[in-house]
Each structure stands twice: as structure tokens, then as C-alpha cells.
């Protein structure tokens, strides 16, 4: 399978990336590296990871997600996991992996709302 890189989008001080279901271990590790570089390079305030497409998260993928969150926090950025499917959530909890310290949102849209300052500049 062609291990294509994961594009990281920059929206102001927010980085956004969508993870594909075909994520292999090496690509995931490279992605975590690349992300930490970018967080530090632009002084990102937040990272939103769209995981809507992930049909499974095993302990390896969970470890990478927790690592990304820890790394980002050390660099001063929040990490929001957006759009986890319900079977994935059930499975993770059963595995005992409830990703402590990682923020979550129902979708990328909700994640952006969460990040917007309260009573902020958003116009409805």
C-alpha cells in the first residue's frame, strides 16, 4: 500500500489533520514527528485531529494519539480529537484506553467551536 503522507492544514494558530483508516505504523510515527515540528514552528495554539474515518484504534494508534497530545501540551498547544465513531469508543474503553488528558469533540466543526474564545468573534 502506498504510505502517503498525511496533509496538515494550517488555519491561523490551529493545525488540522485528517487521519485515514489505512494508516500504517510507520506513517503514523512520521506524522507525529511532522506535527510536533509544525506545532513548534508556527507556535500553534491547538491541533484538531479528524478521526471520523478511523474504523479502529488499537493500542498502538492510541499510544500515538496520547503521545501527540502530551507533546503538544508541552509545546503549549491543546489537542482535540474530533469525530470518534461509537464502536471505536466502546472498544477503546473496553481495552482500558480512555485517552486521559485528550480533549474530544463530536466533529471538526464542534472542535473549532470549542476552540473559539467564549463569546468571541464568531458571527452566526
Amino acid at each position: 500500500m502506498n504510505s502517503s503522507e498525511i496533509p496538515i492544514l494550517r488555519l491561523g494558530k490551529v493545525l488540522l489533520a485528517g487521519l485515514s483508516n489505512e494508516l500504517d505504523d510507520k506513517t503514523a510515527l512520521r506524522f507525529a514527528d511532522e506535527l510536533s515540528h509544525q506545532v513548534s514552528a508556527i507556535g500553534a495554539e491547538a491541533v484538531v485531529l479528524d478521526i471520523t474515518k478511523l474504523e479502529i484504534i488499537d493500542s498502538f494508534a492510541a499510544r500515538i494519539l496520547v503521545e501527540i497530545a502530551t507533546m503538544a501540551r508541552l509545546l503549549g498547544a491543546r489537542v482535540v480529537l474530533a469525530g470518534m465513531r461509537y464502536p471505536v469508543a466502546i472498544t477503546l474503553v473496553e481495552l482500558g484506553l480512555d485517552l486521559p488528558g485528550v480533549e474530544t469533540a463530536l466533529s471538526v466543526e464542534h472542535a473549532m467551536d470549542k476552540l473559539a474564545p467564549p463569546g468571541g468573534s464568531r458571527v452566526g
Binding site: 474504523e55 479502529i56 488499537d58 465513531r85 461509537y86 464502536p87 466502546i90 472498544t91 481495552l95
Partner: peptide, 17 residues
Amino acid sequence: GLVGQTKLITAASELVR
């Protein structure tokens, strides 16, 4: 079902790795 399927694939993924 969706949940059973996800659990089995996840278990397989752990063991295959």
C-alpha cells in the same frame, strides 16, 4: 454488527502486530 466487528478487528490488529 458494527461493534462486534470493530472489537474483533481491533483484537486481530493487536495480535497480528
